[in-house]
Simulated assay, not measured.
Amino acid sequence: MRGARITALLAACAALLLVLQACAQKASSTEPHGSTGNACDASAARFAIGMAPERELLDRMQRVTGASTVRTTGFNEMVTKEYRVGRLNVQLGTDGRIQQLTCG
């Protein structure tokens, strides 16, 4: 009888450890991507608001903001919501020109 209780207790502890491990893995996978210290300062590229998003301009914006990547999105375009610390988001207006800049 006592052996069966110990076996049941050990099985319950093992199950609890598996659940806690799964929770810990899920929590760490939701941390922001690109959190390697690549800070982005969108305000450094404000000079580009109202301009056409040409490749040379986007490259310059990436350099001055310190961004590791640049994502350009059109007006009302659906995008993923993942947060990336080092990404510069360039949002275009209905006229196809740069309307808003954010990092993340």
Rank of each mutant, 00 (worst) to 15 (best):
R46Y: 07
R63K: 08
C23A: 12
S35K: 08
L17E: 08
A45I: 00
G50I: 00
L16N: 07
T69W: 08
K81G: 07
A45Y: 03
F47E: 10
T80E: 13
G37F: 11
V70E: 00
M1G: 13
K26Y: 11
L10I: 11
G3I: 05
E82H: 14
A15R: 01
R84N: 13
G96R: 02
E31H: 12
A14D: 04
S35H: 09
L58I: 14
T80M: 07
T94G: 05
A15N: 05
L58R: 03
A24N: 06
S68I: 06
D95G: 11
T36E: 10
V85Q: 15
M51H: 15
C13K: 06
L88V: 00
A24S: 12
G66A: 03
S28I: 08
R71H: 06
T30C: 04
R71S: 06
P32E: 11
G66P: 07
G34A: 02
Q62A: 14
T94C: 00
I49M: 09
I98N: 02
T65Y: 04
T72Y: 03
A22S: 15
G34E: 01
T73I: 14
L88Y: 00
L17K: 04
A15E: 05
T72I: 15
C40L: 04
C40F: 01
H33Q: 14
C103S: 03
C13E: 07
A11Y: 04
V64R: 09
